[in-house]
Write a protein that binds this DNA or RNA. Structure first.
Lengths: 365, 365
DNA sequence: GTGAAAGCGCTAACAC
DNA sequence: GTGTTAGCGCTTTCAC
């Protein structure tokens, strides 16, 4: 390993440019108020010495770290089985990078990890946090509140809505989500519009709001069509292919007359598709099938290719980061950043930014 | 957003415990040499005040950051299409966490990102770096060398081997890889052992050493069997399903008599499988097929399930982190950490740690 | 506009 | 053993 020679300091730059440390600091931080010839000399010295500010020293006085924690709380392997997580990360990374912030990744694997992460966040090592994959019973929100770290959630947090737990942070909570309910409605409406009368739904893991919201969307539409809603057409699952298979078998056994399925996500649809084929049901002729997510590696690869509801995952990540940085720089969360056309920022009480979804027609419905 | 009240300092703890700052520091850092009753009083004060050391202040004097950068240089979407990346990350995260280090994620998307990352690494913001997905023409190694940051590579770096570029860092380079060549040999031997005489190979992207090594393994075995090696049985591809399809078509057109295929990875095998089915070749009856990686979400889900070469991706990540931390704490890279049984640490010139692979038999071969 | 000087919170000599 | 003290490299009043 090469010997790490000590890097040049502000002092060194000042000496070389023949000015004071204060002046160098001003130039480096673009504070202005420095006459051009001087500034130029400083820039020159910086370049010659290859000066890079010492972030630790800077943080010590500014109390800012230019760093944001990304907390992924997914003990299960699910997150790792689909590119969801990677895409969000990519969006986040882009935005943070653009605003010169670093991304500190905190993965939560086991139960004790919660304490560790909470301690880290409370330790004031980062300026803010981006938190994902919350389940209804997740202790994280409480811990985060205790740490009093500015936070933006990915996906509408479950508490405050359902169970009676820590709902203290109800209003004031900032999150970014896609229009799960609207997307589900669009999917089911499409199936109904195709003339399908017996539309089933395989839910996601119902301890996550995305699953609940998609189920609600399904109910919205099925409730409208005469004789549409039938609880036997509902099978609870967990967002996985295996879960999709199980649920599809169950549905087929219970309601052999079903002629369409709206699956909570593409992975679930994949499982359902396998069972449908196995049982000799043709898709979409006998049974029309729609997924959710538009995970290209799945939806485009199935046979037939999957009709599904697209959400812009990378954009969600980017928006989360943008929102957080905005909060950090003193902006109110409500002042939504240039939200993409079609997204919704409900007035109150939560500061949620909802991205639009879009039905993508392929061959399965 | 809750007001972030200023955290208690060493000073405050010292005052409360009625000792000096130095003593508190000793206790907090487990330096020893503090009499028990005193130490206990300090611990008490720490607990009561909820004291957490200020990492910035600490770094400023120790020049250590307890942070490691993970650099993922994959402009293409490939990394995001498979769980490889997530698994490595998980292994890395576990090890870093266990040793109380943070993970700073640096994603490289475009060409200018290289400069940014290089600047960051050179800035001395992290103690070391873990670098992935290097292609032969990647400028990163050179930049990293310039930054003189202790680094461990994921996968054998390509330079120094093939092209005449920056091979300066040849010896001294530390990396972790799996036994690509050995795994490939095992796969091809298995096919040959099955009585297949016309074994084709679909390569990965040949600007990555993993692809080259697997190809070498294939050649090793085919060179041994009489009349085995035939360059027409080789199709170059890129580790993707689409690439696998293309290559499989090409092979089938060129050598209709082939009776086995070794694909460079599972994704490629997936594409090949589709084409084989489309062309009416039964797997494994007519054509035996083997992949590489044992990516469960692929290998277990295909029809028939894929025989493949398993590598322990998470373990690779964990090992990379362990190696780096060891180097950072002054250990020589050669003193390989408790390497899992079966792994190899070549004496010289590179300090590479090679993890074993294992053939996993399923139904496709 | 520019410089001098006072810390930010911590560790590590060095005294005692 | 324990306390005292001198910085680590930077930003930021406050004079000039």
């Amino acid at each position: 390993m090469t010997e790490a020679v000590s890097r040049p300091t502000l002092e060194a730059v000042a000496a070389r440019a023949g000015v004071s440390r204060a002046t160098v600091s001003r130039v480096v931080n673009g504070a202005g108020g420095v006459r051009e010839p001087l500034a130029e000399r400083v820039r020159q010295a910086v370049a010659e010495l290859g000066y890079v500010p010492n972030q630790a020293a800077r943080s010590l006085v500014t109390k800012r770290h230019q760093a944001v924690a990304v907390v992924i709380a997914e003990p299960e392997t699910r997150v790792f089985a689909d590119p969801f997580f990677a895409l969000q990360l990519r969006g986040i990374s882009k935005e943070l990078t653009a605003q010169d912030n670093q991304l500190v990744l905190l993965l939560i694997e086991g139960r004790d990890d919660h304490a560790r992460v909470a301690r880290y966040l409370a330790g004031g090592h980062v300026d803010g946090a981006l938190v994902f994959s919350l389940h209804l019973d997740d202790p994280l929100p409480g811990l985060i509140q205790g740490a009093s770290v500015p936070t933006v959630f990915g996906g509408r947090p479950g508490w405050g809505a359902g169970t009676g737990r820590t709902r203290a942070q109800g209003p004031g909570v900032v999150y970014v989500d896609c229009d799960n309910r609207g997307g589900a409605r669009a999917a089911v409406r499409h199936l109904v519009g195709l003339g399908r009368g017996r539309v089933a739904h395989i839910t996601g893991a119902l301890d996550q709001t995305s699953a609940v919201d998609r189920l609600d969307g399904y109910r919205d539409v099925m409730g409208e069509v005469p004789g549409g809603y039938d609880s036997r057409l509902l099978a609870e699952s967990d967002f996985t292919p295996a879960g999709g298979e199980r649920a599809m078998r169950e549905l087929l056994d219970r309601c052999p007359d079903l002629d369409a399925v709206f699956a909570a996500n593409d992975l679930t649809a994949l499982g359902a598709l396998r069972v449908l084929r196995e049982r000799g049901r043709r898709v979409p002729v006998d049974v029309a099938l729609i997924g959710f997510d538009d995970m290209l590696s799945v939806a485009e690869q199935t046979d037939p290719p999957l009709t599904t509801v697209r959400q812009d995952i990378e954009e969600m990540g980017r928006l989360m980061a943008r929102l957080l940085l905005q909060v950090l720089s003193g902006g109110r969360a409500q002042d939504t950043p240039e939200a993409p056309a079609g997204s919704t920022a409900p007035a109150a009480p939560d500061a949620g930014l909802i991205l639009p979804t879009k039905l993508v027609r392929r061959a399965s419905a």
